[in-house]
């Protein structure tokens, strides 16, 4: 399997894991290690001075794991830049999962603010991995703005509904000059394999592993699915669906060329 390279750094695993929703930090750590992941997201929260809880970082910091702090909770680009600076200080890394989703119901990313924040954060020296809509035009704009990857959604966060955006993911992957990481909505190993077969560079999984009956075994299942999907992609899938290009129904060129 080819190595994944993001911002010049090599990854042996194409499975990224989130750390939310696990029943315990111990269980989370076992699942992370079983998955073989080398990229793990973490969030930030305001300290509750009365609450002396377990240090979750202790369970995540391993030499082979790149921490990927997220900006979950911010509502716009300005807040995202502030959160990014706090994250860089707290975690000692300039890698960042940029996520701006002001609407708590669907948690869908705000396209305008995400693009604006990406432009600013790249200038500030961050390695920006934006969570974004499965919008091929936006993904090219994020790439041009200097994003290290794009992370389009398969379906809304935590829904386990799989690749509802499949047609657009195909276009994004076909056009991309940077790695495409399918994030959100991946609810089963088969979804992860499907994304990898399409040519995604990696997938980010959280809920499907964290809330599984046995998260450690599910982590292994995802590891195998991602490897199988990637292997199939690299081997060259027989009879893969050709990309359907759009066919204009309006005379675009007549308007543009006088």
């Amino acid at each position: 399997m080819d190595k994944l390279i993001i911002a010049g750094k090599e990854f042996n695993s194409r499975l990224f894991l989130g750390t939310g929703k696990f029943n315990s930090n111990d269980l989370m750590e076992k699942a992370l290690l079983a998955s073989g992941t080398e990229m793990v997201t973490v969030a930030m929260k305001r300290i509750d001075l009365e609450d002396k809880e377990d240090d979750m970082l202790r369970h995540i910091v391993h030499p082979h794991i790149q921490l990927l702090p997220n900006t979950s909770g911010v509502r716009n680009a300005e807040e995202a830049v502030f959160a990014a600076q706090m994250a860089r200080e707290a975690f000692g890394t300039n890698w960042l999962k940029l996520e701006i989703h002001p609407d708590p119901r669907y948690l869908l990313p705000d396209t305008v603010e995400t693009l604006k924040a990406t432009e600013q954060l790249v200038k500030l020296g961050f390695v920006v991995l934006p969570y974004c809509q499965a919008d091929p035009v936006l993904c090219k704009q994020l790439e041009e703005a200097g994003a290290a990857t794009v992370m389009p959604l398969g379906a809304p966060i935590g829904t386990n509904r799989g690749l509802q955006t499949r047609e657009f993911l195909q276009i994004i992957i076909e056009q991309a000059g940077i790695p495409v990481v399918v994030d959100a909505g991946i609810g089963a190993p088969s979804h992860a394999a499907e994304a990898m077969e399409l040519g995604a560079s990696a997938v980010l999984v959280n809920t499907a592993i964290a809330v599984a009956g046995n998260p450690v075994r599910m982590a292994v299942a995802f590891k195998n699915a991602v490897e199988a999907g990637r292997e199939a992609y690299e081997a060259g899938l027989g009879g893969s669906t050709p990309l359907f290009e759009a066919s204009a129904s309006s005379p675009l060129t007549a308007f543009l060329d006088k």
């Binding site: 696990f22 969030a43 929260k45 979750m56 997220n70």
Partner: peptide, 8 residues
């Protein structure tokens, strides 16, 4: 004052 938390 912020600290690390679990999240996806």
């Amino acid at each position: 004052v912020i600290k690390a938390a679990c999240g996806g």
